Amino acid sequence: MDKQMHRSSTEAALRRYKEGLGAFTNKLPEVAKQFQAFTEVCFQEGALSKKEKQLIALGISLATQDEYCTIYHTKGCLDQGATEQEILETCGVAAAFAGGAAMSQAVTLVQECMSELATKH
């Protein structure tokens, strides 16, 4: 698959997520507001850097086979300056923990996301 097709699929998935979040927020604004506030605090700089937190989130996303979170947190890793090597090592740790399911996402979805999204950084 060429880079343009991958880019549009990743961007489309991110757009679908944002649209779904917007619809959910319209229906349950207080729940969405509280969830967003909670996650913002969780991802703030602290003893762990924002980059480290995104790498952890990526590993958990892979281990739980959550495609949207995998895309979202691969982007988060790139946005926080994670290198390809750091992202791939995170994928390796997730695969060691979650086995083949995590590895299958790492060798496909994460690499596609890095390829598509890295051109924007």
Rank of each mutant, 00 (worst) to 15 (best):
Q54W: 01
Q54K: 08
T83A: 02
P29M: 01
A82D: 03
T64N: 10
L55G: 00
A96F: 11
P29H: 06
V107K: 06
Q36K: 12
V41H: 11
T90L: 05
L55P: 01
A96H: 11
A98Q: 02
C77N: 06
E67T: 14
T90E: 05
F97Y: 15
C69E: 06
G20F: 01
H6P: 02
G76V: 09
K3C: 13
A101G: 14
A13L: 13
V93F: 10
C91Q: 08
K75Q: 12
S115R: 08
T64C: 10
H121Q: 14
M114V: 09
L109C: 02
K27I: 12
E89G: 03
T10I: 15
K120P: 04
M103D: 04
E84V: 10
G59K: 05
N26T: 14
E86C: 07
R15A: 12
F97V: 15
A95T: 14
G81H: 07
M103A: 13
A98K: 04
T25R: 10
L21S: 14
L78M: 08
V110G: 00
E84Q: 12
T83I: 02
D79V: 03
L55W: 02
E67I: 14
S8D: 13
Y17A: 11
R7P: 01
A23K: 13
P29C: 01
F43P: 00
I71L: 07
G100Q: 13
D2G: 13
C91Y: 07
Y72N: 10
E45Y: 05
F38R: 09
L55T: 03
T70M: 01
Y72H: 12
H73Y: 00
A13T: 08
A32T: 04
V41A: 15
T119C: 08
T108W: 06
H73A: 00
K51P: 05
C69S: 14
A82L: 04
A57W: 00
A23V: 10
L48C: 11
E116F: 08
T10S: 10
S104P: 00
D79R: 06
L88C: 07
L78P: 01
L21Y: 13
H121C: 09
A13E: 06
K53T: 08
